[in-house]
Amino acid sequence: MATDNIMKVNLKVWRQAGPKEKGGFVTYENVETTPDTSFLETLDILNESLIEKGEEPIVFDHDCRDGICGMCSLYINGHPHGPATGATTCQLYMRRFKNGETITVEPWRSAAFPVLKDLMVNRNAFDQIQQAGGYVSFNCGGAQDANAIPISKVDADEAMDSATCIGCGACVAACKNGSAMLFVSAKVSQFALLPQGRVEAAKRVKAMVAKMDELGFGNCTNTRACEAECPKRISISNIARMNREFLCAKLKD
């Protein structure tokens, strides 16, 4: 049941004035919240008190707060999106933490995701990878009837599982190698599984992997940290599929 128990936490937050400035941790003690308050709302509460004191609030990315837009990030107590599994930061509630606990909040750490300010990072690299080939090449208006190509339910469901990726970057943040393989493979898989995407599958996978490498993401060493931390539980079987698609495509060159 909803409770009005007040709880207090200490927030140890990374503050950084700009991309080139040097950052550091600042600890805000005894931030009052309740177990039914979300983590981001607790940051809102803290920000409100900072503004009251005339200080600049902590900057962090967030938008839908429904766990779907992929905007929120934050590395909380050693986990991207915090300690809850299968959930984004905006779906994290304070009852996950103990009264009086010190919670460490850091931005995503990866060379490809530079910090813009405080906890906000630039994930533009993900867009660039998608632009390299994450689409089916056809123009609006030219489509045939939607039921003209039957697609097996198994394939459609699996493509859907891959397509569930919200592009938040938790996989990169979790990976000790800063690898984006889970993200890229999810998109490659979705299209590779569907007849619409099959046509240009070889071209797509080569273009997207090349872009990923170019942008300085690391190499996958199959630690499975990405899969364990992914808020949408994207499986690394996607990575195996991408490897397969990529190697086959290259062998045909």
Binding site: Y135, G141, A143, A146, I151, A156, D157, Q190, L194
Partner: peptide, 22 residues
């Protein structure tokens, strides 16, 4: 109706029946 055609052609994984239709 055109919207559904367009989205399927884009590779939107709509739910399907076992027969393969939408």
């Amino acid at each position: 109706n055109n919207i559904i055609d367009q989205c399927v052609a884009q590779g939107v994984p709509f739910a399907r029946e076992y027969g393969g239709l939408l």
